[in-house]
Amino acid sequence: MNNLPSKDVGALENLLLSGAALSIIGLLIVLPLGVVLKEAFAGGLKLWLESVGDPDARSAIKLTLAVTAVVVPLNVVFGVAAAWALSKFRFKGRSLLLSLVDLPFAVSPVIAGLIFILLFGRHGWMGTWLTDHHIRIVFAVPGIILATLFVTFPFVARELIPLMTEQGSEEEQAALSLGATGWQTFLKVTLPNIKWGLLYGIILCNARAMGEFGAVSVVSGHIRGETNTLPLQVEVLYNEYSFTASFACASLLAGLAIVTLILKTFVELKSGRDAA
């Protein structure tokens, strides 16, 4: 219904409105994206390939993928558990818990990084103990994982809670009354009903996990080839005035953003059709 052109918008009005909106989208959104691609390929495809194939860049790509591979599954488990508890049951403290789940969204990424330095840094609470036992958390991969986990924490839960609350628990009750066990009910009834919402949450969580900059920047230590994720590699190269190399790495992340938008649109279309 929303796609029907409204008769109220006259031709002139539509022209003005479209002009204004498309200029905003063009100038603020399309142009920055275009600049990334233009600068990335400014030195030709060969230079781009060299930049992306550079050992440091490759190790940054590997680290980014590894961190994401740890963080996303953990957040999926958390998101599903939190959504099950918060949407299928009513209990004391539920609304407090609901807002606590969203809390990481209100925390600036830099603060998200900072809190782990305060806990595990050399001058942090557990710093001495960790140094004595030769365990490195900050300025190392575990710190990057923790910081990324923190900033992406609510993504899956946030998609699932409203969806599962709206779906209610009648289908689960029906499954139980037909003799299904708890796990059978979850796997055969709940999971198929939330699959698109779950996928949507995973896509957003994945994009943020791969692209997180602020929080990771604080805890990483910027050790080339070791603790630089792809976004950090972009920063390091940019600050060294290696613009083409920096934009080459940035173009990979821009590609990730575009793929994310395409998948997101696809999931929206698909789930919208299922609901209809």
Partner: peptide, 28 residues
């Protein structure tokens, strides 16, 4: 409830929306 063996018909049916009629009936 899953061991009481009662047939319960819900007010709004609570049919499994992702299953066909056949799969719904075969579920139990």
């Amino acid at each position: 409830v899953n061991r009481r063996q009662v047939g319960f018909v819900f007010q709004h049916y609570a049919l499994f929306r992702h299953m066909t009629v056949f799969e719904n009936i075969a579920f139990g």
